[in-house]
Simulated assay, not measured.
Amino acid sequence: MTLIVRDLRPDAPADLEGFARVRHLALPFILATAESLAHDLLHMHPDAHYRPLVAVADGEVIGTAQVHLARESSEPGQGSINVYVHPGRRRLGAGDLLVRAAEEHLAAHGARRLLSWVLEEPGNRAFAERHGYRASRSAHFLRLDLAGGALPPRQDPPPGVELRTGADFADDPRPLFLLDAETMADEPSDVDAQFTDYEAWLAETWRHPLFSPALTSVALVDGRPAAFSAARTDGGTRYGTVMTGTARDFRGRGLAKLAKNDSLHRARAAGCTEAFTGNDTGNGPMIAINTWFGYEICATEVRHVRELA
């Protein structure tokens, strides 16, 4: 067997499809398509030094790594490495080679602290620890059966509140950028995120092929976007909410729940049968909202950290 690690090639359909296949097998709770991977590779901000890698054995993609700097963080030098190997092709050395190549790339671009999400399984945890990573915070993946489960009924917005879709902001999405930036800044995480680059947000979020403006719901208070639930879909039956949040001045009024309920109903009407989301284990309010909708925890991942000399 010949095993090599190299860059993902955006002009190679077999590369993109193989990357998406491995990601789906190893992490079925995250939406990924060949088109979305190509978009990320071509449109990620240059300062992120984004470098997706593939491990290839005898012409078959058996491992993947998504590697970049956290350029939105106020603390420079933080790198991200997320490695996934085909469940049936483990213990062949692909993970080791991917980690080594990823670490060398990030170190060359000034990374001093490396962070990696690791599924909460003994083998995965042992792999991370063997490479010098220590466990930090954790997060849950949650799944909701949209085909067979019962959603809470649609709710009429209270006086002064209006429900719209992301598509209604097609001519000027800046108000959603500002709302996304404010809510993201308050997300519990090892790495703070400060969205200040509107053009980068347009390229990486608004124009992302998985993003669905039609299934994204926005609650407006007196005409101002106050809460939203941002939706992605793989173009088939799988749907995910990647951010649900409320502006600070409007919290405690149930607006995030209102927006997410509207988005879930839209998704089911559009033919989606599975809904996925993720929550930091310390985000009690959002976990409570998702439990109210009927989401169930389907997996847990643990962030692991390695400090470089």
Rank of each mutant, 00 (worst) to 15 (best):
A227M: 02
Q194C: 14
E204C: 07
L215I: 06
W206R: 08
A181K: 11
A227W: 00
W206L: 08
P188R: 01
D197L: 04
A203D: 13
S217D: 01
M184Q: 13
L176A: 08
V218A: 05
S189D: 14
G223P: 05
A193T: 15
E182S: 14
P213L: 01
V221F: 05
D190I: 06
A231Q: 06
R207A: 08
L179E: 08
L220W: 02
P209Y: 00
A230P: 07
T183D: 06
A185G: 03
D180V: 11
V191C: 07
D186F: 03
Q194D: 15
L210W: 00
T183G: 09
F228L: 10
F228N: 05
T205C: 13
L179T: 07
H208T: 07
L215G: 10
P175I: 08
A200E: 12
A185F: 06
D197S: 04
E182R: 10
S189Q: 04
L220V: 03
S212G: 04
T183A: 12
D186S: 12
V191T: 14
L215M: 11
R232E: 13
E204Y: 02
L176E: 08
V221A: 09
P173I: 06
A227G: 07
R174P: 15
P225Y: 00
F228R: 06
S212N: 03
Q194E: 15
A230F: 13
A219Q: 04
S212M: 02
W206K: 07
T205H: 11
L210I: 03
E199S: 07
F195L: 15
F228H: 12
F228S: 13
R207D: 12
P213G: 01
R207M: 03
T233H: 14
D222N: 08
A219P: 13
A214H: 06
R207S: 09
D180I: 06
A231K: 00
D222W: 01
W201Y: 07
G223D: 03
V221P: 12
M184D: 11
A181L: 11
A226I: 00
F177T: 12
A185R: 12
A226Y: 01
L220D: 03
S217W: 00
A227V: 02
E182N: 10
A230K: 06
A214C: 04
G223Q: 02
D172I: 10
S189W: 00
F195Y: 15
D197Q: 02
A200I: 01
P173G: 06
A200R: 04
S189A: 14
E199I: 00
V191S: 04
S217T: 05
A226V: 01
A230S: 09
D172Q: 13
A219K: 04
D197C: 05
A226K: 00
W201G: 11
H208S: 05
T183K: 04
F211M: 10
E182A: 14
L178G: 13
L178A: 15
T216P: 06
L215D: 09
W201A: 09
D180H: 15
S217A: 14
V218H: 03
R174G: 14
Q194S: 15
T216G: 02
E187K: 01
T233N: 10
A230L: 13
A231V: 04
E199D: 14
D197R: 02
D192W: 06
E199N: 03
P188Q: 04
V218D: 06
A214N: 07
D190F: 00
P188V: 05
F195S: 10
